[in-house]
Structures are given as structure tokens and as C-alpha cells.
Design a binder for these strands. Structure first.
Lengths: 168, 168
DNA sequence: ATAAACTTTCAATAATATTTGAAAGTTTAA
DNA sequence: TTAAACTTTCAAATATTATTGAAAGTTTAT
């Protein structure tokens, strides 16, 4: 397969994966484009490469910066802003985990926590079932949370080394 | 907080979490409802509890069965179908992991694999960057895949015991 | 100060996803 | 059979989310 075709396919696949996991398709595509680009690109070039409008490109780039996945770059003597992506896939994974944990997981954990002081009759099956589910979910969520925390601090090789070692 | 209010809040929170992770909000809500219900419920009761239409309820229930998260139950002498959710949170997590791996991760891994035999000039930075990204993503994806596989087979306590042990 | 080069905003529009509800389909009991 | 009880389907309506593009805003050089 030719490089040009492969690039398009990669961008498409990355975009699809993103959209299935709650990340805007265009955002994932722009990220993919920058990820496989050796040099930083301008808004103009990104618009061109993905056939998207200026407004869309601008907002998407801003979002990606907010996610910590790309950065602006300024070239000496040029007005234009260039954008480039962190190429370290482990950093990317950590960054995404960090943001989603903060934006989505933590608010839910907060609600679950509030709910755990629900009042009711210990003899009521509805109450007991509710309590049990909450407790179990909290336990699981606590473990997920701890593991993510470790991941966020860890080096890739150490993390996978540790995790995979116990699984063979 | 009263049980009734707490239930509503839980259903809402579960629905929101679901929608942020690419799962239809109604589907997550129906699942939440059944998860905290001690007995199996009819379509009618679910429609009523969540104010959704018959068609929506029917499709959502079918989807949830497809995900392996709920089951039908028949009561002796009754025509109606009852639905109940597996209450084991670890089973739920595994089931969701299994389905999403199959439906979304695997197709992408397949594409990534196809892309890895892209042809090009080793001296071309665009080619080198592309190759490098692919290789790195494949490596990470491989580790995620192995870990998920282990999770799917494992008992909860063993899995978290093993993972958390190395993280203390 | 002015104008060119570039970036940002946001109301309008388009695309996508979800939901409805009534009709069609199925099963059971008498 | 027939009809009541129940389930499924799916075209149309609604709601949600993403995108456009032109106008407004900003920065820099002269």
C-alpha cells in the first residue's frame, strides 16, 4: 500500500475509533493527521488535508490543545501558527486517561458517593439491592481509579512490565 | 436522601456516564433501573419508570440482551416477559469490555495491521514518522489487548489483587 | 494610523442519532 | 377460529451534535 493511501486510511480509522468512544470524529482525525506528520502544520494545511472549514479547524485545534494532545509552535519571522502533536503514544494514552478521568469519571464518583448516604429500611429489598449495587460499583471504581492514578505517574515500560508480569 | 430520589439520581448519573462513553443514554438508564431493581420488570414498567415509548423500550431491551447485560424471564402462568440485570458488577465490567473490544477495538487493530505493510522510502521523514506511529500504537494496543484478555478470564479478586499488588 | 495577515466567534445550517407511536406481527387460551 | 394479550417493526418526527462561513477581532509591520 502507498503511503498516501495508508495515511488516509489511518486518519479514517482513528476518527472512527474516536467517535465510538465519545471523542468528536474530526478531533480524532486532526490528531491522527498531526500524529503522522513529521513537521508542524498550519490551520490552512489542516483544513486542506481534511476538507474542513476554518471555524471547525480552529475550534478542534483549540480542543486538542485543551486535551494536552497538541501544541502551538511559532516559526521565526512568520505570523502563522503551526501545530504539532506529541508523538509519544504512551503520553497520549496517559493524557486521554487523565482528561476523561477528570471530566467524566470523577463527577460520577462524586454522585455515587453522595448516594451512599441514602436512608431507608434495611428490610426493604429495593433498599438492599440499591445499597449493594452502589457498594459494588464504588469498590470497582475505586480500583479503576487507583490503577489509573498509577498509570498517570508511571513510565510505560514499568507499567506494562508490572501488569503483564503477573498475567503470564 | 430518600430512596426514590436516590434511584432517580443514580439512573441519571449512569445514563450520563454511558452517553459520554459512546453508549446510548437510554440504554444505560434502562440498565441502571434493572440493576437496582430487586425483581425483574416488564416492558410496561420500564416505559413507565423512565417515560419512554414502547418502541424505544423494546429496542433498548433487545440491545441490552445483545450486550449480555440483561436477560428475559418468564413467570409461570403469565404471558408477559420480564427483564432482569446481572447484578454482579465485575461481570458487567467484563461483559462491556468484551463487547467493545470485539465491536470496536478489533476492527481498528485489523486496519492498523494492514497498514503496517505500507511501502515507502526509508529516507522519507513522512514515511518514517508514519511507520513509527503505527509501530508504537500497535505495541500499546497489544498490551491493552493482553490485559483485557486476562481480565475477561479472571476472577475479580484475583485480577485486582494482581494489579494492585504491584502498585502499592 | 493603516492595512495586511492571521485568528476567533457564533448564528445559521447540515448531519447524525434517538425516539415515537401506530400498524403489523405473534402467541396463547378458549 | 377468533380475539385478547403481548411484542416487534420502522417511517416519520424530534432532539442532539457537528460544521460552515462570513463577519468581527487581533496582531504586526510599516
Amino acid at each position: 500500500m502507498e503511503l498516501a493511501a495508508a495515511k488516509l486510511k489511518f486518519i479514517e480509522a482513528w476518527g472512527k475509533l474516536g467517535s465510538e468512544w465519545g471523542i468528536n470524529r474530526t478531533m480524532a482525525q486532526v490528531h491522527a493527521l498531526l500524529l503522522i506528520s513529521p513537521e508542524a502544520l498550519t490551520t490552512e494545511e489542516i483544513m486542506e488535508a481534511l476538507s474542513i472549514s476554518r471555524g471547525n479547524a480552529n475550534m478542534t485545534l483549540r480542543d486538542l490543545i485543551g486535551w494536552g494532545l497538541i501544541e502551538k509552535q511559532h516559526k521565526a519571522g512568520e505570523r502563522k501558527e503551526y501545530f504539532f502533536a506529541d508523538k509519544d503514544v504512551w503520553n497520549i494514552a496517559r493524557q486521554v486517561a487523565k482528561e476523561r478521568k477528570k471530566r467524566e469519571l470523577e463527577p460520577v464518583l462524586k454522585v455515587l458517593n453522595e448516594l451512599s448516604n441514602v436512608t431507608g429500611d434495611e428490610k426493604d429489598p429495593a433498599y438492599k439491592t440499591f445499597k449493594k449495587s452502589l457498594t459494588d460499583i464504588n469498590k470497582l471504581a475505586g480500583n479503576v481509579d487507583k490503577t489509573l492514578e498509577t498509570m498517570l505517574k508511571a513510565e510505560e515500560s514499568w507499567f506494562w512490565g508490572s501488569v503483564l508480569k503477573v498475567f503470564k
